[in-house]
Every structure is written in structure tokens, then in C-alpha cells.
Amino acid sequence: MNIVVCLKQVPKKDSILRIGADQKWIDERDLSYEMSEADAYALEEALRQKEKHGGEVIVISSGPERVRQSIKEALAKGADRAIHLTDPLFNSGDPAVIARALAGALKNEKFDLIFTGLQSDDYGFAQVGLILAEMLGLPSATIVMEVQPEDSGVRVKRELESGWFQWVKLPMPALLTIQSGINQLRYATLKGIMAAKKKEIKEVKAADIGFTESDAISAQSIQRAYFPEKTKRTEIIEGKPAEAAAKLMEKLRFDARVF
């Protein structure tokens, strides 16, 4: 079974974010990056499926040079080869633009499943996977918690709201968006890191896939980025731990009356 995993690299979770000079995005200077969390789980699930059923895991990611680091991490963990969409034309704040680039690059690949994370930790669109499925004419299931390949297709456990679940059967090829936490992530081994050096990373530019300027037009774009206004006035309690603890307990007891 061949599985394509779409990976996105995002600023590390504990990054201190600042608004950029154009006030339309964050200031990207001095940031460290990592694989978006749900994508890491999608990769792990693909590797586990490959270990059980054989086949190939192909990772695909778009972005500048720094993205190679996440691609290499995926290869070191056990992915077989990678596609890196390097053209700046692919960069967009519109999920349809990146889906078009992915669709172009995957058109000639042979696969049974495409995995994406449920949503990215930066934009959080939760859209690219589904738009890609629509463009490639694939059936889809979102918020997937378990994947069971069967003779005639794939059976997946979907998370619904408020603790409800549902199994859904899909014919393959299909696209699944994977929920965080469905497995335990592995670390790359030294052997894996060494093996990764020999694995293929194919670079793809716009011209390679017939992606034109008009494909890159964003239908939605951020006009302003800013920190949220607080909806509540938060009283920050200062002081050394013991002091702050005493003050907080007093407030909870006499002002908030929670006891």
C-alpha cells in the first residue's frame, strides 16, 4: 500500500510570536520550526501502515529551504522518498492555492491513500486536504482516529463531536485527515538518519507541474494581523510563588467565593 503524507512546517509550539512589520503576518525572524503536530501523527500512521502492509511512504511538503529539515526528519523516521515544492509561487494564505500545487505534483504519483494532518498549527484552515481530494476526485474522511485497510478499500474510525465516533468505509484511493494523538510518535534513530541521506528529495517548481501565475491568485488573504483583545480583565498576580499563592487563595475565597 502506497501512502502520500502531506507535511507542513510551522513555527515551534512554544515560539514567542510577534506581528510582522506589514501587520499581515508574524515576524518570521529568529523563529525555530517543526513539523505541524497533526502532520507528525499522519506521518506516524503512514509508517505504521507500511510496516503492517508493505508499500511506500512518500512525503510532500511546500516551502522554503528550511522545510528540508522537516522532510529529512520524515525520511529519517522511515519515509521512502520526498517531494519538496520549492517555488515561491506556491506560497499563499489561500488553502486552494497550495492544494492546486499539491494536486499538480501528485497527479502522476501512484498511491492508495493520502494522509494530511487534521489542521495545521499556523493557519489552522483544515481545508487543504479536502480541496486536494476534490481536485483529484478522491473520496475523503476527516478527523480520523484509526485506519484499517480492507480488501475492497479502507475502513476508518472518525471522531464526531462530544465523545461520539463512527466507522466509515471508503474505496481507495482516498484522502484521510488524521487527528492528533491517534498513535505514539517515534523518534528517528541514528540508523534512520544515516539511511535518510541516500533517499530522494525531488524538488518541484511551478513550471514542472504546469502551475501558472493565475493558479497562484489568492481568493482570500489576511488584511490585518493583531493580538486579540482580551475579553476579560485578567488580574495578574505578582510576587514570589508563596506570596502569589497566598494572594490568589485569598481572592478565590473572598472575591470569587469559589469555596
Binding site: L17, I222, Q223, R224, F227, P228
Partner: peptide
Amino acid sequence: IFQGKINTDV
């Protein structure tokens, strides 16, 4: 965006 850390007007 960024899981509620930043607001944007789109």
C-alpha cells in the same frame, strides 16, 4: 491563527 494566539481580518 496560531491556535488563538493571533487574530486576523481576512
